[in-house]
Protein backbone atom coordinates (compact mmCIF):
# COMPACT_ATOMS: atom_id res chain seq x y z
CA UNK A 1 0.00 0.00 0.00
CA UNK A 2 2.99 2.32 -0.06
CA UNK A 3 2.84 5.03 -2.64
CA UNK A 4 5.09 7.60 -4.18
CA UNK A 5 4.06 11.23 -3.91
CA UNK A 6 4.93 13.75 -6.57
CA UNK A 7 4.85 17.39 -5.55
CA UNK A 8 3.80 20.06 -8.00
CA UNK A 9 7.35 21.38 -8.25
CA UNK A 10 8.43 18.14 -9.82
CA UNK A 11 10.52 16.89 -6.94
CA UNK A 12 9.77 13.26 -6.27
CA UNK A 13 9.49 12.22 -2.65
CA UNK A 14 10.50 8.78 -1.42
CA UNK A 15 7.94 6.33 -0.19
CA UNK A 16 7.41 7.31 3.42
CA UNK A 17 3.99 6.17 4.47
CA UNK A 18 0.78 4.28 3.76
CA UNK A 19 -1.52 5.94 1.24
CA UNK A 20 -4.36 7.88 2.80
CA UNK A 21 -6.32 8.59 -0.33
CA UNK A 22 -6.58 5.26 -2.13
CA UNK A 23 -10.13 3.86 -2.01
CA UNK A 24 -10.51 0.97 0.40
CA UNK A 25 -13.54 -1.32 0.39
CA UNK A 26 -15.81 -0.95 3.40
CA UNK A 27 -15.20 -4.55 4.44
CA UNK A 28 -11.39 -4.41 4.39
CA UNK A 29 -8.91 -3.41 7.11
CA UNK A 30 -5.15 -2.87 7.25
CA UNK A 31 -2.39 -5.11 8.55
CA UNK A 32 1.14 -3.84 9.23
CA UNK A 33 3.68 -5.73 7.13
CA UNK A 34 6.31 -5.33 9.83
CA UNK A 35 4.58 -6.19 13.13
CA UNK A 36 1.17 -7.56 12.13
CA UNK A 37 -0.84 -4.90 13.98
CA UNK A 38 -4.26 -4.41 12.37
CA UNK A 39 -6.49 -1.35 12.10
CA UNK A 40 -9.45 -0.03 10.10
CA UNK A 41 -9.12 3.73 9.74
CA UNK A 42 -6.41 4.85 7.31
CA UNK A 43 -3.19 6.17 8.80
CA UNK A 44 0.27 6.78 7.36
CA UNK A 45 2.09 4.69 9.91
CA UNK A 46 1.48 1.67 12.09
CA UNK A 47 0.38 2.86 15.56
CA UNK A 48 2.61 0.27 17.22
CA UNK A 49 5.87 0.11 15.26
CA UNK A 50 5.57 3.15 12.95
CA UNK A 51 6.05 0.83 10.02
CA UNK A 52 5.12 2.36 6.69
CA UNK A 53 4.10 -0.73 4.76
CA UNK A 54 0.72 -2.37 5.13
CA UNK A 55 -1.59 -4.72 3.26
CA UNK A 56 -5.35 -4.90 3.38
CA UNK A 57 -7.41 -7.95 4.27
CA UNK A 58 -11.09 -8.83 4.32
CA UNK A 59 -12.91 -8.62 7.64
CA UNK A 60 -14.67 -11.82 8.62
CA UNK A 61 -17.19 -12.10 11.41
CA UNK A 62 -17.32 -9.56 14.19
CA UNK A 63 -19.33 -8.83 17.33
CA UNK A 64 -21.52 -5.82 17.98
CA UNK A 65 -20.36 -3.85 21.01
CA UNK A 66 -22.90 -1.01 20.95
CA UNK A 67 -25.77 0.14 18.75
CA UNK A 68 -27.77 3.31 18.23
CA UNK A 69 -30.63 4.52 16.08
CA UNK A 70 -30.00 8.05 14.84
CA UNK A 71 -33.20 9.93 14.09
CA UNK A 72 -31.69 13.31 13.20
CA UNK A 73 -29.36 12.67 10.29
CA UNK A 74 -27.67 14.79 7.60
CA UNK A 75 -29.86 15.49 4.55
CA UNK A 76 -28.20 12.81 2.42
CA UNK A 77 -28.30 10.03 5.00
CA UNK A 78 -31.20 7.68 5.70
CA UNK A 79 -33.36 8.43 8.72
CA UNK A 80 -33.34 6.70 11.01
CA UNK A 81 -29.77 5.55 10.55
CA UNK A 82 -29.15 2.38 12.55
CA UNK A 83 -25.45 2.17 13.45
CA UNK A 84 -23.29 -0.35 15.25
CA UNK A 85 -19.86 -0.31 16.85
CA UNK A 86 -18.38 -3.72 16.07
CA UNK A 87 -15.16 -5.49 16.97
CA UNK A 88 -13.51 -7.80 14.46
CA UNK A 89 -10.97 -9.62 16.60
CA UNK A 90 -9.89 -6.35 18.15
CA UNK A 91 -10.27 -4.17 15.06
CA UNK A 92 -13.14 -1.79 15.82
CA UNK A 93 -15.29 0.17 13.43
CA UNK A 94 -18.68 1.86 13.24
CA UNK A 95 -20.94 1.02 10.33
CA UNK A 96 -24.54 1.06 9.19
CA UNK A 97 -26.64 -1.91 10.24
CA UNK A 98 -28.85 -3.75 7.76
CA UNK A 99 -31.19 -5.14 10.41
CA UNK A 100 -33.12 -3.04 12.92
CA UNK A 101 -33.18 -5.94 15.39
CA UNK A 102 -29.40 -6.30 15.81
CA UNK A 103 -28.15 -5.72 19.35
CA UNK A 104 -24.88 -5.84 21.33
CA UNK A 105 -23.37 -9.32 21.39
CA UNK A 106 -24.74 -10.32 18.00
CA UNK A 107 -22.37 -11.77 15.40
CA UNK A 108 -22.18 -9.61 12.26
CA UNK A 109 -20.45 -9.43 8.91
CA UNK A 110 -20.54 -7.04 5.99
CA UNK A 111 -23.11 -8.11 3.40
CA UNK A 112 -25.35 -6.82 0.63
CA UNK A 113 -25.14 -3.75 -1.57
CA UNK A 114 -26.56 -0.49 -0.27
CA UNK A 115 -26.32 3.21 -0.94
CA UNK A 116 -24.84 4.54 2.32
CA UNK A 117 -25.31 8.21 1.42
CA UNK A 118 -27.52 9.69 -1.29
CA UNK A 119 -25.43 10.33 -4.37
CA UNK A 120 -22.95 7.55 -3.70
CA UNK A 121 -21.95 6.00 -7.02
CA UNK A 122 -20.80 2.77 -5.45
CA UNK A 123 -23.12 0.43 -3.56
CA UNK A 124 -21.53 -0.94 -0.41
CA UNK A 125 -22.28 -3.56 2.25
CA UNK A 126 -23.82 -2.98 5.65
CA UNK A 127 -23.31 -5.02 8.79
CA UNK A 128 -25.80 -7.84 8.97
CA UNK A 129 -26.43 -10.82 11.20
CA UNK A 130 -24.50 -14.02 10.58
CA UNK A 131 -24.51 -17.41 12.23
CA UNK A 132 -21.46 -18.47 14.15
CA UNK A 133 -19.02 -17.06 16.66
CA UNK A 134 -17.53 -13.62 16.21
CA UNK A 135 -14.02 -13.79 14.87
Amino acid sequence: MSDSDSSTDGVDRPDDGIALDEPVAVDRAFRCADCGRRWYYQRRRCPDCSGTDATTYGLGTGELVAVTRVEMTPPDVRSPNRLGLASFDGVRLIAQLADEALSPGDAVAFAGAHRLRDGDEVLRPRLDAVDGDPG
Binding site: V26, A66, T68, M72, R78, L83, I94, A95, P104, R117
Partner: peptide
Protein backbone atom coordinates in the same frame (compact mmCIF):
# COMPACT_ATOMS: atom_id res chain seq x y z
CA UNK B 1 -15.32 12.89 11.44
CA UNK B 2 -12.90 10.51 9.71
CA UNK B 3 -13.64 9.89 6.03
CA UNK B 4 -14.60 6.26 6.66
CA UNK B 5 -16.96 7.43 9.43
CA UNK B 6 -18.38 10.09 7.13
CA UNK B 7 -19.18 7.44 4.53
CA UNK B 8 -21.45 5.76 7.07
CA UNK B 9 -23.37 8.97 7.78
CA UNK B 10 -21.93 9.39 11.26
CA UNK B 11 -22.51 12.61 13.20
CA UNK B 12 -21.37 13.67 16.65
CA UNK B 13 -24.72 12.67 18.22
CA UNK B 14 -24.18 9.21 16.69
CA UNK B 15 -21.08 8.77 18.84
CA UNK B 16 -22.99 10.12 21.82
CA UNK B 17 -25.75 7.57 21.32
CA UNK B 18 -23.31 4.67 21.05
CA UNK B 19 -21.37 5.79 24.14
CA UNK B 20 -24.51 6.48 26.16
CA UNK B 21 -25.92 3.04 25.43
CA UNK B 22 -22.63 1.39 26.32
CA UNK B 23 -22.31 3.44 29.54
CA UNK B 24 -25.78 2.57 30.78
CA UNK B 25 -25.29 -1.10 29.93
Amino acid sequence: VHDREYDQGLTLPSFGGLAAGAYLD
